[in-house]
């Protein structure tokens, strides 16, 4: 009897193990079939704000930049990007290194956790995640952006940015209108980013000493957390004079307007960008 118990046990164990052996094997082609949904051009789109926490000494950050580029290409005009250089990986260490860090970017990075995180990390509409954080790994950005683009817009936002070369003054005119009612309105943050900055980047495949940095956060022109809105719709105008000793190239600047809950959820309700030179 004891002998049979052993034999039965030996036979039963592989069956129990087989119960746990679920698997899907995928054969080529590995890509999904194409297919797009028809676009309703009259609808107010809720654009996606992608904050990319990055650094010049972060070897994986160029891969993050590639994903950002892919998201923008696949969703033209619907994605707004800010590259916030922060933390250990953004510290310049050689004479050729460029210091992309800004006080406003550091404040954001501290609030959202990017300052001490391994990079790159990103945020889609600065939304809080189930684990209480805001940061996504780079492979989560694309699907996160896709998902967020399905959200209904709650605010309509228009931005017109101009630049006066004589006075080196940026003017941003923002029109907003809430499409749904809220008990309390949110904050309007207006900031500036710059494309085309040539500087070293660790991990770049080609010519790492002359990497093209895009969407680099330059600063906020109405404060790190912007201005609290008090009306359902209004027009706001902000001006900012680029300091004389600054190396910003106006043709490469982008002005960004964000409507965000800065008190509770940190969620971005709408974002818009505009360049001076079209």
């Amino acid at each position: 009897m004891y002998k049979y118990k052993k034999i039965l046990s030996l036979l039963a164990l592989p069956m129990i193990m087989a119960f746990f052996a679920s698997c899907d094997e995928i054969d080529a082609p590995y890509t999904e079939d194409g297919g797009t949904d028809p676009v309703d051009t009259t609808k107010v789109i809720k654009k996606v704000l992608l904050d990319e926490f990055t650094g010049i000494k972060c070897v994986n950050c160029p891969k993050g930049h590639e994903i950002t580029h892919e998201i923008m290409e696949d969703n033209p005009d619907n994605v707004v990007v800010i590259a916030v250089h922060c933390g250990y990986f953004a510290m310049p260490q050689g004479d050729k290194d460029y210091d992309f860090r800004t006080a406003d970017g550091n404040a954001w990075a501290t609030t959202y956790g990017g300052m001490s995180a391994s990079l790159p990390k990103g945020m889609i509409n600065r939304e809080g995640l189930s684990d209480g954080t805001h940061l996504l790994d780079r492979e989560e950005w694309y699907s996160g952006a896709e998902q967020a683009l399905k959200d209904e817009a709650e605010v309509k936002l228009e931005l017109k940015a101009t630049y006066d070369a004589a006075t080196r003054t940026i003017t941003a005119v923002v029109d907003y209108e809430y499409l749904v009612d809220f008990e309390q309105y949110h904050n309007l943050i207006v900031c500036v980013t710059e494309d085309g900055i040539i500087a070293p980047q660790t991990g770049a495949e080609d010519d790492p000493d002359n990497y093209v940095h895009n969407h680099a956060m330059r600063g906020c022109i109405n404060g790190t957390w912007g201005e609290a809105l008090t009306e359902k719709s209004a027009q706001k105008t902000y001006t900012y004079t680029i300091p004389a000793d600054s190396d910003w190239i106006p043709e490469n600047l982008t002005v960004i307007a964000i409507i965000q809950d800065v008190d509770k959820t940190y969620e971005v309700l709408q974002a818009e960008d505009d360049q001076f030179v079209k």
Partner: peptide
């Protein structure tokens, strides 16, 4: 044997 399940939400790749 170890098997893990995670939903495929990727719109570009067919993921197991």
């Amino acid at each position: 044997v170890v098997s893990k399940f995670q939903e495929d939400t990727d719109s570009k790749l067919v993921l197991p």
